[in-house]
Simulated assay, not measured.
Amino acid sequence: MNLNRSLGIFATLLICTWASTFFDQEWDAWKAKYDKKYSSTKEEHLRRKTWEDTWHKVQKHNRRADRGLSKYWMAMNHFADITPGEVRRKSCLMTTGAEAANAPTYSFGLRQGLPDHVDWRESKCVTDAKSQGFCGSCWAFATVGVIESRLCIKNNKLMTLSEQQLVDCDYENGACCGGLPINALMYVTQNGIMKSEDYEYEEKQKTCEFKEDKAIQLNATKYYNLPDENSIMSAVALEGPVTVGFAADYDFMQYSHGIFDGECAKSANHAIIAVGYGTEKDEDGEEQPYWIVKNSWGEEWGENGFGKVKRGIDKCSISTFASSFDFLE
Rank of each mutant, 00 (worst) to 15 (best):
H270W: 10
P181W: 02
N173P: 00
G262R: 14
S231G: 06
D284P: 00
Y201D: 06
L180A: 05
K195W: 00
V244I: 15
K206Q: 14
V275P: 01
I273H: 03
Y171T: 12
E212T: 13
D198T: 01
I272Y: 12
Q288C: 02
G285C: 06
Y277F: 07
V293K: 00
G298A: 09
A220P: 10
G179W: 01
S267Q: 15
Y224T: 11
G298C: 09
M253V: 04
E229P: 01
F260C: 03
D261T: 11
K214R: 15
Q288V: 15
I216R: 07
G174E: 04
C176G: 03
Q190L: 02
E172Y: 12
T207K: 15
K214T: 08
L238V: 08
E287F: 02
D249T: 06
E203S: 06
I292D: 14
K204D: 05
G192S: 05
C169K: 08
Y223Q: 14
P289M: 14
K294I: 04
L238I: 10
G174F: 00
N230H: 08
N269R: 05
N191T: 09
E209I: 05
N183V: 00
N269A: 05
L226K: 11
Y277V: 01
N225H: 14
K281Y: 11
V244A: 15
G174M: 04
L180N: 00
G245A: 15
C264L: 13
I273T: 15
A274T: 12
E239I: 09
D284S: 10
L166T: 09
L218T: 12
V242N: 15
G258R: 13
G240D: 04
E299Y: 02
A271T: 08
N219I: 02
G285P: 13
E197A: 11
V167S: 05
V293R: 02
A235C: 13
A274S: 15
E280F: 00
F260P: 01
E200V: 08
H270C: 08
M186I: 01
F252W: 15
Q254V: 04
D170E: 13
V244K: 02
N173Y: 00
P289Y: 07
D213F: 10
A247K: 14
S296P: 09
E229M: 06
A248F: 09
A215F: 02
F246K: 08
P241Y: 06
Y255M: 11
M253H: 09
D168P: 03
S196R: 13
K266N: 14
N219V: 03
K195G: 06
I292Q: 08
D251N: 11
E200H: 06
I292A: 08
E172P: 00
Q190K: 10
E287D: 15
C264Y: 11
A175M: 03
A271K: 02
E286W: 04
F252A: 11
E287C: 03
A274L: 10
D282Y: 01
Q288L: 08
N173Q: 01
H257T: 13
A247I: 14
G192F: 07
E299L: 05
C176S: 03
A274V: 15
I259C: 09
L185W: 12
A248G: 13
G298T: 04
F246G: 10
Q205M: 14
D249F: 11
I193H: 02
G298H: 08
M186S: 13
D251H: 12
G192Y: 01
D228V: 12
V188F: 13
K281M: 11
E203H: 12
Y277M: 02
A184V: 06
C177R: 13
